[in-house]
């Protein structure tokens, strides 16, 4: 947990405990904001409720700005951060499949577990569906392998591959995000309400 553990402020064994606490709080906040309702989650795709969009963009912006401020102050080192490896076509096709599943089921994997916790039947079916999907993937892995491991571009970020100044990128991203939030509010005010 940076910047506390790499800088030695608290001992490294607190890692798992902090992870548990953060997960607990995260689940609580998800449920309290109503994200266990599949109609609210699928609203992004049908255009009547944009909560998911706002959550994602806000999370990305807060972590991005926070990280870069901590890097400026010297608490964390941006160059030492773990970056996920980029498998281009695997990401695109996997993302499309996940999007179809999201709209069809009305949950993403994290919120489905939240909804299982409150006893929703469609969340339980969703989790069973996840298990079936994992089974299919692992049994037919030899067919998926070139897609899974192909087009590997390394652990790159947007800054590396497009050579853009990260600070300007963050600023423009913020302005765009706020514009999108305002737009989504306008759309929501003018659309028929859905009961959920």
């Amino acid at each position: 947990m940076g910047p506390l553990i790499p800088n030695g402020i608290i001992p490294a064994e607190w890692d798992s405990i902090i992870a548990l606490l953060i997960g607990l709080v995260f689940g609580f906040v998800l449920e309290a904001s109503g994200f266990s309702s599949s109609r609210k989650l699928a609203g992004v795709f049908y255009g009547y409720d944009f909560a998911v969009l706002k959550v994602f963009f806000t999370a990305a912006l807060v972590s991005l700005i926070g990280l870069y401020y901590m890097d400026y102050l010297g608490y964390v080192d941006i160059t030492q951060m773990y970056v996920h490896p980029t498998y281009l076509w695997g990401a695109i096709i996997g993302g499309a499949i996940m999007g179809v599943g999201f709209v069809a089921g009305g949950f993403c994997p994290g919120t489905s577990l939240c909804a299982v916790a409150i006893g929703k039947v469609d969340a339980i079916v969703y989790v069973v569906g996840i298990m079936i999907g994992v089974l299919i993937f692992s049994e037919l892995f030899s067919f998926f392998q070139p897609l899974y491991e192909g087009s590997f571009m390394g652990n790159i970020t947007l800054v590396d591959s497009f050579d853009i100044n990260p600070y300007w990128f963050i600023f423009i991203f913020t302005v765009l995000a706020i514009g999108i939030f305002a737009l989504s509010d306008k759309i929501r005010a003018s659309v028929k309400k859905v009961f959920y």
Binding site: L61, I65, Y68, Y69, Y72, Y167, W168, I170, F171, F173, T174, V175, A177, I178, F181, A182, D185
Partner: peptide
């Protein structure tokens, strides 16, 4: 409230550019 939050975001991001 949302306007205030949006303003805070823009100020923080702008600060990152201008520092």
């Amino acid at each position: 409230r949302y306007k205030i939050l949006a303003l805070i975001f823009i100020i923080l991001a702008g600060g990152l550019v201008l520092l």
